[in-house]
């Protein structure tokens, strides 16, 4: 196992390098640059001033020089400073967004798993029943509903009409004066709608996946054997079938590691949540190269690590793979 992991880790280096080159290249291919977004059509800007600002950001140099500079800093884990007018270190901008993004994504992932796995299992066990069909309709409605529309309806109901929940944002205005349990409660109240809305759309994928895995497993010989042994249906389904059907979920979880720091622009915009989605969107729109690259690199590293973790976990969980490997 040790040498295998080491080999995989070493392999990541060229892959990562390739990813950064492609990302940098694609970003440079997009028309416009961070300076023109700020200075074009600005009556206060003359050509001289524009050149000054371009030079300040090093944009007057050829792309490969810019890349080399960026890479050199990156090797020392220096993400550089943002090209946005705030000129803040990229790492600060990312770090202040990550906690809330992680929190919401982890909570909704837990909610998705907690609801989708039982739904999928029950659908498979009662294949083609009314429950199965009802579930299918329900999860696909969730998948199809536009997030922003559902979010607005829920805000009107729970925020304006019933006044049970806050409408947007993360904290009440009085947050600073609250005691710790009150703070948790306050944060929790603010998270109810965002977490619900963001998981609702994800139910379909996970429950369908679980259902087909389960159907696959139920047809296997060893399930027939288990039934033949006279085990009761509960034991057959939850002990023998479910554990095997859950295996591919590990891969899915591994693949969703990078998604944990990714956010959705629409959803964060609607709920006024200062997450990664908005940061990335704004950075791309203003051609803030260092921030875009920073987020892409972190995303790439997490993807690679997530894949490795999934593979390792898989072999830990599944003796068949261990034997073969």
């Amino acid at each position: 196992m040790g040498p295998y992991i080491l080999k995989r880790l070493l392999l990541m280096i060229p892959v990562l390098l390739g990813i950064t080159i492609i990302s940098f290249g694609v970003m440079k291919l997009a028309p416009g640059d961070p300076v023109s977004v700020v200075t074009d059509l600005n009556p206060n800007m003359n050509k001289e001033a524009i050149e000054r600002i371009r030079a300040y950001y090093g944009l007057d140099q050829p792309a490969y020089v810019q890349y080399a500079k960026w890479l050199k800093n990156m090797l020392m884990l220096d993400f550089g400073r943002s090209f946005a007018p705030d000129s803040r270190p990229v790492i600060d901008k990312i770090m202040e967004r990550i906690p809330v993004t992680l929190l919401i994504n982890i909570l909704s992932m837990i909610l998705i798993l907690a609801v989708a796995i039982p739904l999928g299992v029950m659908s498979a066990v009662k294949q083609n029943s009314v429950f199965d069909k009802g579930t299918t309709v329900f999860v696909f409605v969730g998948f199809a509903i536009p997030t922003f529309w559902l979010a607005l309806l829920l805000m009107i109901l729970f925020g304006v009409k019933l006044e049970w929940l806050p409408i947007s944002g993360l904290r009440s205005l009085t947050y600073a004066e609250l005691s710790v349990p009150e703070k948790v409660l306050d944060l929790g109240k603010h998270l109810v709608l965002p977490v619900f809305v963001s998981s609702f759309g994800g139910l379909a994928g996970m429950s369908r996946y679980m259902r087909s895995n389960m159907l696959e497993v139920i047809r296997q010989d060893y399930i027939t054997t288990a039934r033949a042994k006279g085990l009761d249906e509960r034991t057959v389904i939850f002990k023998h079938a479910l554990r095997n059907a859950l295996l591919p979920v590990i891969t899915l979880l591994g693949l969703s590691v990078p998604g944990l720091i990714g956010g959705s622009v629409i959803f964060e915009t609607i709920f006024a949540i200062p997450g990664m989605g908005q940061l990335f969107y704004q950075s791309v729109m203003s051609r803030d190269y260092p921030t875009v690259m920073g987020i892409l690199v972190i995303g790439a590293v997490l993807t690679l690590v997530g894949n490795l973790l999934a593979d390792v976990m898989y072999s830990v969980a599944d003796p068949r793979i261990r034997a073969a490997g």
């Binding site: 009107i156 925020g159 409408i167």
Partner: peptide, 20 residues
């Protein structure tokens, strides 16, 4: 003076309606 950032105008209007 507290200036709240609410990127979506529809959400902002709901906050106004809720008295916040």
């Amino acid at each position: 003076v507290l200036t709240r950032v609410i990127p979506d105008p529809a959400t902002m209007f709901l906050e106004l309606k809720a008295g916040r």
